[in-house]
Write a protein that binds this DNA or RNA. Sequence first.
DNA 1: GTGAAAGCGCTAACAT
DNA 2: ATGTTAGCGCTTTCAC
Lengths: 350, 350
Amino acid sequence: MENKQKITIKDIARMTGLSKGTVDRVLHNREGVSRKSYSKVMKVIEELGYEPNIYASLLAQKKERIVLVLLPKYEPGEFWELTEEGITESSESAGNLGVKVEKVDYDQYDIESFRNACKKALSLKPSGVVLAPMFRNETLVFVDKLNTLGIPFVYIDTKLESNSYLAYFGMPTYQSGYLCAHILTDEQDPKEVAIVRIQRDKFGKSDPTINRREGFMDYIAEHFPACTPYNIFINPNKPEEIDSTLEQFFSEHPDVRHIAMFNSRIYLITSFLGKHPEKKYRVVGFDNLAANIKALKDGLVTCLIAQRPGDQAHRAISALTDLLVFGREPSGRDNFMPMDVLTRYNAEYY
Amino acid sequence: MENKQKITIKDIARMTGLSKGTVDRVLHNREGVSRKSYSKVMKVIEELGYEPNIYASLLAQKKERIVLVLLPKYEPGEFWELTEEGITESSESAGNLGVKVEKVDYDQYDIESFRNACKKALSLKPSGVVLAPMFRNETLVFVDKLNTLGIPFVYIDTKLESNSYLAYFGMPTYQSGYLCAHILTDEQDPKEVAIVRIQRDKFGKSDPTINRREGFMDYIAEHFPACTPYNIFINPNKPEEIDSTLEQFFSEHPDVRHIAMFNSRIYLITSFLGKHPEKKYRVVGFDNLAANIKALKDGLVTCLIAQRPGDQAHRAISALTDLLVFGREPSGRDNFMPMDVLTRYNAEYY
DNA sequence: GTGAAAGCGCTAACAT
DNA sequence: ATGTTAGCGCTTTCAC
């Protein structure tokens, strides 16, 4: 293992008495090589442990591949912005490997816009695709197309149990709900907990919060069978109503001290929380949006469970470039990212 | 910004009417270029946004640099093994950039061995050094030598407030103690807490647990002024004594339920903890050693605060290769890594 | 089937 | 002070 990176195709050519061209053909399993030459080359490779110089290869190829990322549009400060940051970072390292990263975005509340995005994506002839599936059926149609075109794709955030994704990077959603309940109730014995939910029409969209809720409920049922969970629905589009909705609920249920929310918008209830410091609500939410972090530091939110969306994107793109450039398959298909527990005293280091 | 990565030194040569050689000289600030040529080249570079192809450059240079990592020897399962894993991973990517990573280890309890390691390190003529300072004075002597030799170095784990390190990657130690106290006492009102410490001779070694203890104590003093902290000393070299030491303490102080430990060896007390499930001790320790994680999952330890030692090493080596290969200075000098809060329900994803 | 040769973008030695 | 040239390791024509 000492002669690392030393031996070149020129060496192999010399040692086999063949030319660089033939060695190259063998290396890439190109046809038009006699069995004899093939095995001569392979023998030397095995024995000497040849490792190609990927950069010389890239230099000589001058071929540009493109990885396509399909992502929901977002407002500043929203969850997907964190994902996008990871994409931007990855673009550079991917660029070094001759892989260009392009984004196509769509309105996550408009299925037609998603369809168009898929069309546009295909028209760009990508060598690989990264996507966060929002519309279940449409996504399945799309990845099916990718499959027949032989274009590898990787899921981030959520996966569909479809056929043939290359890899998935995301949070273990059920467990995140379980963890959420654990943190919310640690060292306590709540008789009631409040779950704040967002009213919205879901037209077939896949929804990670469903799994979270399940994990959460299971934990509660297992550990606090006598505990009653309440659901409170708020409307993010009518911020002025949120406070009164909450005021009403909590005046009707004055003993509820534990609050959880399974989407990334715990910041929506901070206005209410700020008005009732005396209640010492214990509040757990998800994702390190700037607004959530602020709520954490202000002491309004007890804890956030975060999922490194930037890393998800980064690793998704890496998996694809590894395949495209190095021919390396990802080591695992389903990759669950760590669930970071943020409190007001460690949040600033994330 | 659209013509990324397109323009080459050949282009520049053509456009300025100079030769590739001269352009290269300008690019590297080599001497022997007239002001006139210099500015002609610079002008084009600015306007066209030239970005060198680092791999072509590396290919042509064929120069091997070496980054030296100075690390304590360790037994399997100990803290430094986590650091080493990061080093191993980094070696590959550094290798791609023509930077070889070499390790030199020493006995962290033997100052003479450290001196020898330093000597050996210098003899290898490294282009950069990564080190975790254990012996304060000796380290200062060593980095002083590095300075006069113009060899950049970066601290991991702990830093010394010495003169001129390139960067530091580590945990914010004081804050980690503060966080530890917060987690230990969250939603409770302890009258007493136990701090388990390790007896050992410290001959001038820098000790991150000192800062942790300070942060911890400050938190307790600020939030629970009436709370009494007890220190219990155990000897890791005499495992058979540990249990009895703890038994004795806790029989004398039956109301103490909160336990913290500021080094990475919380696993040392799990034998004791396992014997007293009825006490429901609340226990917080540090670092994700395999043995600690096991204790966490077994429910013996409530929480671990982990610091990503692998990442520390990785980023340290990156900082050095960035400087060596790309000439990029690190963006920040003191880089604090996230403090991960591990519970039994998220530990397996780290 | 195989070899020879040009060239990717850059560096370094050698001319001038 | 500047130009020329021969590679670095690999790919890709184009011949034979």
